Amino acid sequence: MSAGDSSAVEHPIRLLIADDHPVVRNGLRGAFADEPGIAVVGEVPDGRQAVDRAARGGVDVVLMDLRMPVLDGVEATAELRERAPGVRILVLTTFDGEADVLAAVAAGATGYLLKDVGTDELAAAVRAAHRGEAVLAPTAAEHLMGQVRRPAPAVLTARELEVLALVAGGASNREAARRLFISEASIKTHLLHAYGKLGVRDRAAAVGEAYRRGLLPATPA
Rank of each mutant, 00 (worst) to 15 (best):
P217G: 05
G118F: 01
G146F: 06
V62G: 10
D202R: 06
G118N: 08
A165Y: 09
V9Y: 00
D72L: 06
G108M: 06
L161M: 11
P153L: 12
G199F: 04
L92T: 07
A129R: 01
V200Y: 05
G47E: 07
G132Q: 00
R67N: 14
L122R: 02
G4K: 04
G208K: 13
R83W: 10
E10T: 06
E10V: 00
A168Q: 08
A141D: 10
I182C: 14
G86M: 00
T93Q: 13
G132F: 00
H193D: 14
V126C: 10
R203I: 09
R201H: 12
A141F: 01
A128V: 03
E75V: 07
L136F: 13
L92E: 05
V44T: 12
S7D: 08
P153A: 12
R149N: 00
A107D: 04
V62E: 04
A194T: 10
A152N: 00
D60W: 03
V40K: 08
A54K: 09
P220C: 05
G170S: 11
A210V: 02
E209A: 14
A107C: 02
K188F: 03
L28P: 12
I187W: 11
S186G: 03
D72G: 09
G97M: 07
A109V: 06
D96V: 07
M145R: 14
D100E: 15
R29L: 11
M68F: 07
D72F: 06
E43T: 14
P69L: 02
L15S: 12
G97Q: 15
V155N: 10
A76W: 04
V74M: 11
A123L: 02
P85Y: 03
A168D: 15
A137Y: 11
G37A: 05
H11M: 00
E209F: 02
T157C: 03
E133V: 01
I38W: 06
V91M: 06
S186C: 08
V40C: 12
V9T: 10
N26A: 14
Y112A: 05
G73E: 03
S183H: 09
D60L: 01
R29S: 12
V91F: 05
A31I: 08
V155P: 01
T94Y: 11
T157S: 15
A176G: 03
I17G: 13
A55Q: 05
V74G: 05
R150A: 00
T157N: 06
V87P: 01
I182V: 15
T93M: 13
R81H: 01
D72K: 07
